[in-house]
Amino acid sequence: MNLILSRSLLAGWGGLLLALTGCIDQISADLPAPPKVLVVNSILTPDSLFRVQVSRVTSATDASSRLLAVAQVSLLTPGGAMEMLRSQGDGLYYSPTKPVSGTPYTLQVAAPGYPSVSATDTVPVLVPIREAWFSFPTGTDRNNELLGTIVVRFDDPAQTANFYEISGYQESQFLILDARGNAALTAEDDSGLNSKSLVFSDKLFNGRSFELRASFLTHGHSSGGFNNGQPTGPTTRPPRLVLRSISRAYYQYRKSWTRHLYNQGSKGDTYDLNQLLFLGDPSTMYSNVDGGYGVVVGYSAQSVILPLR
């Protein structure tokens, strides 16, 4: 039955595409040239070298590379120290050093024929996980598939605004974490956007202990087997949890990126034809690059394999 419906749907779409093709007229038009603007992207983390990608805004008809291999990328640190980053080609630039948590860094980028741009961000100090585990099974979804529950606890530093991202992985796949019922996550209003990670601030728990309980549909689950002739219960591979302490700029960019992905009809990394029919209005992407586009953001992360409880 599903196969018949799928073929009917494809046939219907094929007819629609043929009808639309017959209604297309080609016209010539002089499109305005795109603005001369640089695009700078970099993620700063204590576990990696400084790496920066430099590109440019181009038109849809421009077949040449967007990536700029002739830019000058300067890294400034407090106290006025400056370092010129080295080119790797293909618009990539790097420094053999790594960022230090709690230190603000400024990237300045110049390229021939383009106005110079700059961006500043700080890698947050890591907020460590105090306790974390998972339980399985703890329930079922509407398709009667077994669900597990992840629990993570950490202590939020007081007297400062902090931002976090929590991700779950299992069998090298993302886990979609359902944290409905948690006040801090509910206040973020992201529950319907199918985000692969949970991004939130400490606005509702500043300076206090925080606990997150989230359900997940497991990967790598087996319904059980036999051990020495005796039946065994259902088992599942332990998931891995990543807690990131993220900068305010990372938080703002990640929020706009989540909404952009959902709004364009992709729902993350999947393709949903029904959603494509009801695309929303264009959404603005966050940028902290002064005079250009892109983002320079920082985070510190801790990754743990969760024990079963």
Rank of each mutant, 00 (worst) to 15 (best):
G294E: 00
S8L: 15
E211V: 15
Q88G: 11
H260P: 02
L10S: 12
T270G: 03
S6M: 10
P112V: 06
A71R: 10
V289G: 11
A111W: 05
R66S: 13
N263Q: 14
S135K: 13
F278M: 12
S245V: 05
L10G: 12
P307H: 15
S28L: 11
G89E: 12
E211T: 15
L44T: 01
D202C: 03
I24T: 13
S48E: 08
G280R: 12
L261P: 03
Y105K: 04
Q72V: 13
W257C: 00
K267D: 07
W13M: 12
Y262I: 05
A179E: 00
T236A: 12
P137G: 02
S222Q: 13
D281P: 07
N182K: 12
T140L: 04
V40G: 00
Q26M: 07
V304H: 01
R259N: 08
L273R: 15
N182C: 10
N162H: 03
T232A: 07
W13D: 08
P282K: 10
N228E: 02
L185V: 14
G225Y: 10
L277N: 06
S245L: 04
S201L: 08
G280P: 10
D281M: 13
E145F: 00
R240E: 00
T77S: 10
T235M: 09
G292S: 10
I305E: 01
S300F: 02
G233W: 05
G148Y: 01
G220P: 06
S101I: 08
G229N: 02
N2Y: 13
P104W: 09
S95E: 10
A111H: 08
S64G: 09
P234G: 09
S101M: 09
L261H: 08
D202E: 06
L38K: 01
A183T: 12
R213M: 10
G268F: 09
M285S: 11
S222A: 07
G298M: 02
Q53L: 13
I129C: 03
N263S: 13
Q26A: 14
A71E: 05
T97K: 12
Y251N: 00
P46M: 11
S287I: 05
N162Y: 04
S303W: 04
T160Y: 06
V54K: 00
Q264F: 09
Q230C: 08
N227F: 12
L44K: 00
L20E: 11
P46L: 12
D290V: 00
P307V: 15
D189G: 02
L16V: 15
L198Y: 06
V295T: 04
G280W: 09
